[in-house]
């Protein structure tokens, strides 16, 4: 069974059990939407992509005593940018699907602290985006074929600090996917006298800070 299939089964299992519990016990379901910034930790990769951003969302199922355990199936994207020139930007796109578990550990005043764990399956693609120079709705962007692409699991640990419906998250994600180079790159390299492996692992560990909101459904 592939890793992605296993992840999908776990995800569906969590969702179903949470929904069943929610239906039986009339537990609340929320929707969380968040966006933040990412910083790659590997110095060599950070030199290429100094910064990135993320957007995630997913329904939250509150469980356990006083709804302190939160299960969140989630989906999101991460995008890292490298400005090649005025019109061309290299991008590293990571599309994620997975889940997050957090626990209402303690609170100080109105601020609640949720340590969390997350696991996602990720699809990674590295390409160039070229703008035609337009602005706003008139801007047209063309994307190159992927230079590198691959997939893999990631794990994230962190702390969520919540004040009413708003929260701030700080986390560290462990992610080491194996990316494959485009076939034409390998053949072009070979013609130039270089041997290029079909795939290579990259360390995309990131530190992230995210702002989000918990919305009632």
């Amino acid at each position: 069974m592939s890793g992605f299939k296993m992840c999908r089964m776990v995800w569906v299992g969590l969702l179903l059990s949470a929904m069943t519990l929610s239906a039986q016990e009339k537990l609340p379901i929320f929707l969380e939407v968040e966006a933040g910034v990412e910083r790659l930790c590997s110095p060599s990769i950070q030199s290429v992509f100094p910064t990135g951003a993320n957007v995630k969302m997913g329904p939250v199922f509150a469980l356990a005593e006083e709804w302190r355990l939160r299960l969140r199936p989630q989906a999101g994207v991460k995008l890292f940018f490298n400005e090649i020139d005025e019109w061309v930007t290299e991008q590293l796109l990571i599309i994620k699907v997975g889940g997050q578990v957090s626990y209402d550990a303690f609170y100080i005043g109105q601020v609640t602290f949720f340590p969390y764990l997350a696991a996602d399956f990720n699809w990674v693609s590295n390409y160039d985006a070229e703008s035609d120079g337009g602005t706003g709705e008139d801007e047209s962007i063309t994307y190159s074929d992927s230079y590198l692409k691959g997939s893999g699991f990631s794990q994230e640990v962190g702390m969520r600090i919540q004040l009413q419906k708003w929260y701030v998250k700080m986390g560290y994600e462990f992610f080491k996917p194996r990316l494959k180079a485009r076939r034409t790159i390998i053949t072009d390299d070979l013609a130039s006298g270089y041997l290029t492996p079909k795939s290579h692992p990259f360390v995309f560990n990131t530190f992230n800070i995210t702002i989000g909101a918990t919305l009632g459904l």
């Binding site: 060599s44 030199s47 290429v48 100094p50 910064t51 290299e90 590293l92 590198l148 180079a181």
Partner: peptide
């Protein structure tokens, strides 16, 4: 936050003469 990088990700892909 600024996104002017140094080189490209492909530059970090191993290549052997």
């Amino acid at each position: 936050l600024g996104c002017k990088g140094d080189g490209t990700l492909l530059d970090l892909y191993p290549i052997d003469p």
